[in-house]
């Protein structure tokens, strides 16, 4: 701390987010202290230089859309390549988890898992770990039918709705 102004105060002041009393204290001091005044001028100048340079960097480092598209394809390729067979797609995982959450309070956690497994077994997926976005529709239909048998049509409607997104 120099002349009663801490480095954090200076930094906040330069960012224009210092509390009013700190601003007043610094500005009152600057009027009478040439050393701090010169220091402030130098740091202000550096900050402005930095802001201009940052703006230039943002404006000039801009890859073309097709470059970004290539990179996005690359990301998906890496994700798919790294997925072990049978590993569930994150979206499928999310949907299954949501369905389990909906089912469990009505029929208990174990029965909820059993219902999911039975629906998968009786759908084109054949097992729960083979459920994908492509075979999701038939799986959900089977689960809805099971839910209807267990808890009635209203609850089955809730299950269908929960499994659609």
């Amino acid at each position: 701390m120099k002349h009663g102004i801490s480095e954090l105060d200076w930094n906040d002041y330069l960012d224009r987010c210092a509390p009013q009393d700190v601003c007043d204290r610094i500005e009152t001091h600057l009027i009478g202290c040439l050393q701090c005044w010169e220091f402030y001028e130098r740091v202000s100048s550096a900050t402005r230089d930095l802001q201009d340079a940052a703006e230039e960097a943002r404006a000039r480092i801009t890859p073309e859309d097709r470059h970004l598209h290539r990179m996005l394809s690359g990301v998906f390729a890496r994700v798919r390549a790294a997925e072990p067979k049978g590993d569930l797609h994150p979206q499928v995982k999310g949907r299954l988890s949501r369905l389990e959450t909906v089912l469990a309070p009505f029929c208990g956690p174990q029965a909820a898992v059993c219902a999911l497994q039975a629906a998968a077994r009786n759908s084109p997926a054949a097992s729960l770990d083979q459920v994908t976005l492509d075979n999701w529709g038939p799986f959900l239909e089977r689960l809805t039918a099971i839910a209807a048998a267990m808890c009635g049509e209203t609850f089955a409607g809730l299950v269908r709705e929960s499994g659609q997104y």
Binding site: L8, N11, F39, E41, R42, A46, D49
Partner: peptide, 19 residues
């Protein structure tokens, strides 16, 4: 974080011209 940012500003002020 703030302390380091301020130090960086001080360092850069040595290579920047005055206002």
């Amino acid at each position: 974080i703030k302390w380091r940012i301020f130090n960086a500003r001080k360092k850069l002020s040595r290579i920047a011209g005055p206002l």
